[in-house]
Every structure is written in structure tokens, then in C-alpha cells.
Design a binder for these strands. Structure first.
Lengths: 215, 215, 215, 215
DNA sequence: CATGAATGAGACTTCATTCAT
DNA sequence: TATGAATGAAGTCTCATTCAT
């Protein structure tokens, strides 16, 4: 019954409102490495530098922590992308380049593991999958569609079906993200993601270029 | 004289060498739905129509079953693709189309869940990840590279860096596969994968088209 | 992940259909000593001579085990009492004596701890409390009422309100049962329960005796 | 100049020596509902309107709180009963009536749950059980014995063994108390406790009446 | 060969207790 | 004095694995 005295007096000094973030960060790191089921909350606690029970002060259970991890940073980042995309001061071409390189840059941040996690666990967490589809996938799709439409209106792209084009635009960037989050450590000679993306934009923009008509 | 009871005469009558396949199939189906950790061997056994202990007659443990599931069908399918790719009777353009539509067709088969599984579990099964990288990813990459090189030599494509081009070619097809295996059930208005792929090929081939020089 | 081989080959030899009884018996013994919450399932398992997980083969959770423990032996015993009570071959006086001494005899059996358990946990298990009230308490009450009515009709007892009389009849026996199951080990000079019951019947029957009228 | 924050001025203003009572009252209420183990100290603190840590300022641990809850009000009440019983100004019959109705009246107060609690937890807290047996049960027994003896001496009762008679006298009242504290909420048509007690006294006093001898 | 009852390590979760503020 | 965030021991329950039949 009795609990012996603890030995981490320094911990309590930290501001209590950063605890949830620290726990989420630790959880994201471990979920990324091992997936949801294979991550033990003990390890999350240790990595966050808190006691095992502390997690439960901020998250009612493991699944809720997982949801929080997935949802927390996604929308701010998506909104940042949207504001970039909808500032019409630049060409659609430049905007797409900016967006895709922003995705590439995100590969160095923990958040880049989230797509892998959601893909892996969609079957076990339908509500989360729906959230992701509606708030991330669909919103991202509409974002790209707007840019593509603007490009077509401004004569940068030929008149393609934007709905069919979105996947082509984002697929290489997403693949780099997934690759980065899962198989890259096991690959021998990694290709330079930035070069791939540059090449992708080159081929894509040629493929979308207005058809030259000669008088 | 009474005959001793014999409860499962039918089961034993089946050819014993189909058991492993049945177990692998059941396991693949469940791993696809729930992932490796969340799949119970009881459920695999039930779905395969065998007793729980029977699995251990053919696979030493759960991880080995997972490896077998991942490895079993991949190489035959890859070899089939390779033989298609290397039959030089057709244009590179046609070959690529054939390959990508073969990937799309695989989306209706259980095997299509394997990339998702490998991506999800790479961190937990390094040996499997290495196998996949070397025997599937790298081999597939070389396969596409050969076709691209042939296309360049034959004047179908302009002279691009094939290593950088491979991801562009396959990314949309892989994305469709992953989407299909995870988030599609939660999406509202699904796009037609075949149309996407057709559009992808259209844009890709325009993007790779030899640069027109005018005299 | 892997579980090392076990070391209780002999256990499996027992007939599997006695397992639930063994587990219930062990659980009843421990619940009686410590109450529901303070009883660890590990201890139940150890006492039953089975592994910890074995309990879950027969009972879905601790609460279900508790319910099973409470419900299992009650009804058969109550039915036995009812058949005694309703065999009208003897006087109501004798029948009551038989019933109360049967309750006293039950004090030496584990089942005698059940009233204590139910009283203690009624607040936490309303469904169980309702079951007990309806199937044990109310049924027992009706049983005694029938005997009392018979006694009145046969002129053994004066014409009392049987509903009000039932508690008077059973209270001392129940108190002995509760005493036995909880505080008796801590008492110094125990009174002889049989003597108490005998005295109770003496006083009770005098108190219920028909009023003598003299001509 | 700003005034430093002071969040709970009202609480601290309360006389500090009422805190323990408030905590005991809250604890008694919750222990009664749920039992010792199932009651969380958080809930006790909340109900008492204090912080969780405050409990430990007055009680070294949960068990000590339980002991305090059990012991606090018992002795004063018992003493009150004793002073009633030992004021010889009335008949033993009236005294017994007064005592039993005092017990019945206590059923409406939280203290009435204590017998249930002690019965439930005797096995886990032997020291408490011994206290209860010696200071409550035995003392109560002696109290009733004195009254019975007085009644016999005064010719109100026939010459019975008082030790054997005590349980008969108190059992119905205790049963009403236990019933009230546990199963009553689940019963359909409750009997009127006062009527039961009145009937009990009627039957008891007839049963104890001196035997009429006719010259 | 095949089975499924049995096992126990291990994970999630709770909550009594502590202590810096 | 009072608080409540933090802790970690301990309990319930799951499930991969074994083995007697």
C-alpha cells in the first residue's frame, strides 16, 4: 500500500503547462519508431522525464494520447501551408514548389511520422482515420486544387482535371515522407530527396505546361 | 465394437501442404486490418480454420509468420513484373503503363496490404525491413530504371536522370496502394484510381517527352 | 514476448469441468477473508492451484467471478430449505426449528460468508444486490411466511402478522452467520451458537404461543 | 499596489479544528456507499471540501482515517445508551424499548453504516475488529445483560440465561441496521422498521414473561 | 499431425502517499 | 496550514507460446 518517497525533486520545478507537450513529444518519437501497440507507456514516461502515472494526469488513456499526438501539430502546419498557398502574390508554380519543399522540410521534424502512424493504425482507430481524412487529407487536397486552378486560370498550366492532378503533385512528397519515416534507415545509397523533388517539379511542370500552338 | 471418436475427419483429409498457405492468407487478411501487434493468433487460427497450436507446426512464432506473409507472394509477383519489363518487344512507354496498371490491379488482392504493413513495422523488424529494401524496393527500382533507360535510348523520353525519375513514376501507384489499404474506407467521394493512373501517365510522359527542337 | 515453458504438467490431468468449481471455491474462501476488492486474483489462482490466466478461461473478469461465487450455491441450498419447509408432515414449530438449525449448520460451510459479502458489496454491485434481494431474501421471507401461516392455522401460534414476524424468526440465525463470518475470530469467550438458537426458539415459541383463555 | 493572489480565503477562515470532523464525515459517507477499498481519498477530499493532501495533515493514512471514522462516534453513543440503561428509574421493559428504538433512530444517521463496515473489513483490520468486539460488542452486551438482570430481579422477566438472551434482544435491531445500510435500496416493498421493532418487543416480552403459576 | 487448455510475462491503469509551493 | 501535481507500487487482464492428449 504505502509508496516510498520519490527521488526527482527537480522535476516538479518545470512549468506544469509544458508537461503535456513533453509527453506528446516523447510519445510521438516512440510511436514513430515502434508503432502504437509496441510502444510502452513506461517508455514514453521515461523519455518524457516523468513518472508513469503522470501521463494519466493529462491523457485519460493510451489511445487518447495517440489521438492527441496525431492531432496536435497537424492543423497548425496545415494552416500555415494554406496561408502560403492562398497568398496570391506569387505564381501557382512557385506556390506548389514552396508547398512541396515545405513538406520535404517537415521530414526532419517528428511530425513527419504522423502519416505513417495514421496509415498503420487507421483500421484500429476509425474515428482518428475519419478525422485525418476530413481534416488533413481532404483539406490538403482542396488546398492543392485551389493552386492548380489558379495556375490554369493564369495560363501556367494547361486545362487539366485538378481532382485527378492533385495526387500526382503530392505523391512523390508523401512517398519521401513515408520512406523517411520507415525504410530509409535500412537503405544503402539514399537518393537526395531535394533533388528528387526538384526533378519531380521539373517533370510535372513540363507535363502540365500549356500546349504550344503555333500560328 | 464401438469405434473411437474422431472429431475432425474432414480437416485432416485436406492436403497437408495447403495448410501453411491457408494460415498465411488468414494472417495477411488480419494483419492488413489491424496491424501486426493487434492481430491475435487465435483469430488467425480461427480464420484459417485450424487449431491455435497448428500454427506452430508451420511457423516457429508470430514474427516468423509475419515474415512469411510478407515474403511469400512478393518475389513471384516482382518476377512477373520483371519478365514483363524486360521483354523488349514493346515500347518503354507501354511497358511502364503495363507495370503501373499491374500494380493498380494488385490493389484488389490481399498482397496490396504488404507495403503498408512493412512501412508500419519496419522499425520493429529490421531484418524484414532490410529484406524488403533490398529484394523489393531496390529490385523494383532497378526494374523501372531499365525501362526508363530503354525509353531514353529509343528516343521515347528525353535524357533524364533515371535514378531521380523512378520515384516520380511509381509514387502515384504506391500512394493508391497505401490509400486503398488504409484510409479509403473512411473517405467520402473516392476518385477513380484508374483515371488517376491514366492521368499520371499522360502528365508523366509529357513531362518526359523529348524536347522539341525546331530547325 | 516469448513465454518460457511451464512446470506444472500434472495439473492438466485434472478433469477440466471441475476447474470452475475449484476456482469458485478458492475465490469464495478469499473473498470471505478479505472482501472483494482486497482479494487479488493471483491469490485466487494460487489457492485454486491454477495459473493466473486460467481464471479468465472460465470467468470474463473479477466481477463475474464474484457474481458466480455468490450465485452458485445459494439457490440449491434455498431450494433444499424450501422442500423441507413445505413438507407438511411435521408441525410448523418443528419446521422452523429445522430451518434455523440448518442455517446454523451452514455456518461451518464456506457458503455462510456470502451474506456478509453481499451486504458489504451491495453498493458496488447493484445487479447482484437486486438478485440477492429478489431470489434469496424475498424467497426466504416467503418460505418462513408460509410456515408461520401454517402454524397459525394449525393452532401452534397465535394470530400474528406474519410479515412482521419473519424478521424476528430469522434475525438471530443471520446474526450468528454474520458474526461467524466476521468478528468471531476476535471474540474472547464465544457463546455456543446452538444454545443461543435453542434459547431463541424457546423464547420465540413462548412469545408466539396462543393466548390461554380460561373458562 | 497589487495585492498578491489568495485563492481560498474562506476555507482557511474556518476553525481549523472542525476539519477532522468534516473529513471523517465525508469518509464515513463514502465508506458506507462503497466500502473501504473502493473509496478513493480524492473523493473524500472533494466531499469534505479540502485538498487531497489536507487529509494527511490529520490522519497518517487511509487506514487510520478508517479507524477514526469507526471509533469516533461509537463510544459517545454507547455511553449515552449506557446512561439510559443504568438510570434505574424505569422498568427494564421500558429501558429495553428505549434502547432498541434508539438503535432504530440511529438508522437515519451515518453512524448506522459502521456495523456494516466493520463486518466487511474485520478480516483486513484485526486491530479494529478487536477494538469493536471489546469496546462496542462486549460493552453493548454487558449493557443489555444488566438490564435483563434487573428485569429478572424486578420480576418483569422469568429467570433466563441473560448471556443467551442478549442476542435475541438485539438481533432484530441490528438486522434492521444492516438492511438499511446495504440492501434496502434494492428492495421493493419495505416493511416498516418501527412496526417490526414493536412486534419484536411484544413477542420478546411475552416470551420472557414470568411463568404464571396458579395457586 | 492436430488440438486447445493452461500458463505467466508484460502492459495498461489506478490510487495512496509525498512534498514543493 | 493547505494544496494538488507527481510518483510508482500493485492489480487486472491479454495473449504468445507450450504440451498432454
Amino acid at each position: 500500500m504505502p509508496v516510498p518517497p520519490s527521488k526527482h525533486p527537480a522535476r516538479r520545478a518545470r512549468r506544469k503547462d509544458v508537461r503535456p507537450s513533453e509527453i506528446r513529444e516523447a510519445a510521438l518519437a516512440l510511436f514513430s519508431e515502434r508503432g502504437f501497440a509496441a510502444t510502452r507507456l513506461d517508455d514514453v514516461a521515461e523519455r518524457a522525464g516523468v513518472g508513469k502515472g503522470t501521463i494519466y494526469l493529462y491523457f485519460p488513456n493510451k489511445e487518447a494520447l495517440f489521438r492527441a499526438v496525431v492531432r496536435h501539430d497537424l492543423l497548425p502546419n496545415l494552416e500555415a501551408l494554406e496561408s502560403v498557398a492562398d497568398s496570391e502574390s506569387t505564381s501557382a508554380t512557385t506556390t506548389l514548389r514552396t508547398i512541396l519543399f515545405a513538406l520535404l522540410a517537415a521530414c526532419d521534424r517528428p511530425i513527419s511520422a504522423i502519416p505513417k502512424l495514421v496509415i498503420a493504425e487507421a483500421g484500429n482507430f476509425p474515428a482518428l482515420a475519419r478525422f485525418y481524412v476530413e481534416e488533413v487529407t481532404a483539406r490538403g487536397r482542396r488546398l492543392i486544387e485551389r493552386v492548380l486552378r489558379r495556375g490554369i486560370e493564369q495560363g501556367e498550366f494547361r486545362s487539366v482535371d485538378v481532382t485527378l492532378t492533385v495526387p500526382l503533385v503530392v505523391a512523390p512528397a508523401l512517398m519521401l515522407m513515408l520512406w523517411n519515416a520507415s525504410l530509409r534507415p535500412y537503405a544503402q545509397a539514399p537518393v537526395d530527396p531535394a533533388k528528387v523533388l526538384e526533378h519531380h517539379l521539373d517533370v510535372l511542370f513540363r507535363g502540365l505546361a500549356p500546349i504550344q500552338t503555333y500560328p
